[in-house]
């Protein structure tokens, strides 16, 4: 099973999940894919791995899309770790297929929830205009 660590600070918009192999391997044309359930509405996903790992070659599949993880551009993450690039989704996802590629060691998934809180929105609902149907009179 996945060990889920939720860093549940108030107001936080992300959560962290440890990836532990083997989980739910799904055989697919010779490569081993893992089904990952996020347990969190993820609009953004990135990996955190040891800095000597090669991230290139790992990817995820969500819906009809295969999205590649690559080295992050924002510099080291501290404690000999590094982040991947940030993958985003138009709508939150709750599961995906993951291929770790050449990553051998520990992997942490960072899930971001950037959805706008509809309830908290100050935007006023649009008012529907009412139209009166007018017919030409033919006397």
């Amino acid at each position: 099973m996945l060990a889920v660590i939720t860093q549940g600070l108030s107001g936080q918009h992300y959560t962290v999940q440890d990836f532990t192999r083997p989980l739910h391997p799904v055989k697919s044309t010779g490569d081993t894919l893992f089904l990952v359930e996020t347990n969190y509405p993820a609009t953004g996903i990135l990996l955190k791995v040891d800095e000597w790992e090669k991230i290139a070659g790992s990817f995820l599949i969500s819906g009809m899309d295969t999205l590649n993880f690559t080295e992050g551009d924002e510099g080291p993450a501290g404690e000999n770790k590094k982040f991947s690039n940030l993958l985003t989704f138009s709508n939150p996802i709750y599961s995906f297929l993951f291929y770790p590629g050449r990553i051998k060691g520990d992997i942490q998934f960072y899930y971001i929830n950037a959805q706008q809180n509809k309830e908290g929105s100050t935007a006023k609902p649009s008012k529907k205009k009412r139209f009166r149907l007018c017919r030409a009179r033919h006397d």
């Binding site: 918009h13 953004g44 690039n85 985003t88 989704f89 138009s90």
Partner: peptide, 21 residues
Amino acid sequence: SAGSNTDTNYTGIVRNIYIYH
């Protein structure tokens, strides 16, 4: 941004980057 080319929710992408940073 090295992110998805298929995500068309651009405001959402910027919000994700903001939270990440």
